[in-house]
Nucleic acid binder design. Structure first.
Lengths: 195, 195
DNA sequence: CGGATGACAGATTTCAATATTTGTCATTCG
DNA sequence: CGAATGACAAATATTGAAATCTGTCATCCG
């Protein structure tokens, strides 16, 4: 075994994130990633078939990080569905708003990656809608919500709150009125589900 | 008076629309507009202070055309507010979907103009939200809706249905599932207003 | 022998020279 | 005299030649 750690997909992804953070989505090259790892760019191609695949994997990782917090809220037992739904929507908005506000450049970088990788994004969105469906189904079982078609309702909730999680609206999230606008939509949608 | 009709802002706007349709937003120049009118480009600048102002005026005109249909629905007397609101939202979606579907290139051209002219767009959106507020207020007065803050509720309805009128989502509007998704959000939102 | 290398061809991006466009205004025209 | 013109400077866009990057693969190294 050599002095440096073995070259793994994991290490390559880490380095790619760093390079993207430093150079942005247009300037970051595979050669940069290889240089950051102290290997030739040919070695990177041993673990990822293309630059596109590498960027896709990084995008997937980034999206995955948000899902954990939401999953915890979804799985929380013994809490009214309406409250849980409100908490879930607020957590999603909060997470996005922080990512966008803390480091706008990095957020812009990932917004570009998101646009490039619609397959990964679609899978991520499906996962989020599936979590919503679990909460909505819980509410329906408890008689809290009156919902004929749970998946459709979950999708509708997600669509209706798009302004507060779709990155295209990120510039609006730093405006002061945004909190009130979010509360209004969140409340409207939850009322719409009620029995 | 010369043989040709007098040069008016109206005629210039017409010619500008035609040039934008033909050449698209990046290639359309003030010289092209002047050529279409058979005058020198200096004459165009007698009626509009800049190319930006000209494009802004064209954008305003284009947005104005949709408002008429919606205003007629808003003003219709003796109709339940819930029904009116459903019709209004459906009409807005229908209008956008047709504009986008009938001539995608022209729609793309105007999408670029919209992005350039956020002042005009904001004014247009305010007008739409004001119409929504009238319908919501009617419903509240009739005891059909239970709404503590009418302007906020109107804004929330508009925000929640963004996926079906914001041009950024236009590519989704040709998908077959879109009608069901629209119905689901529309119904959810209207239920959320109900007393 | 399995993993890493770097030379290479084709694709893509950059950059600077060149051309076009915007906006002004002194002059012309009816 | 008021509206229209077109020459012009500054700003912007286009182009194509040079540089860089992606992806492959014959070769090397431990």
């Amino acid at each position: 075994m050599s002095a440096a750690a073995a070259l793994t997909p994991e290490r390559i992804l880490e380095a790619t994130e760093e390079v993207l953070r430093r150079y942005g989505p247009t300037k970051a090259t595979v050669v940069d990633v290889a240089r950051a790892l102290g290997v030739s760019h040919g070695s990177v191609y041993r673990h990822f078939p293309s630059k596109a695949a590498l960027r896709e994997a990084v995008t997937d990782r980034w999206l995955g990080r948000t899902v954990g917090v939401l999953e915890r809220i979804t799985a929380e037992p013994g809490r009214p569905a309406a409250e849980k739904l409100a908490a879930w929507l607020a957590a999603l908005f909060e997470a996005k708003r922080h990512k966008a506000g803390d480091d706008p450049e990095l957020f812009a970088t990932y917004t570009v990656l998101l646009a490039e990788n619609s397959r990964v994004v679609d899978a991520h969105l499906s996962e989020l809608v599936a979590q919503l469906a679990r909460i909505v189904a819980e509410g329906a079982d408890a008689g809290e919500f009156s919902v004929p078609d749970v998946p459709a309702a979950a999708r509708a909730v997600f669509d209706a709150t798009g302004r507060f999680h779709d990155p295209q609206y990120a510039p609006e999230w730093s405006r002061p009125e945004i909190a009130a606008a979010f509360e209004a939509v969140s409340a409207l949608v939850i009322r719409g589900l009620r029995a």
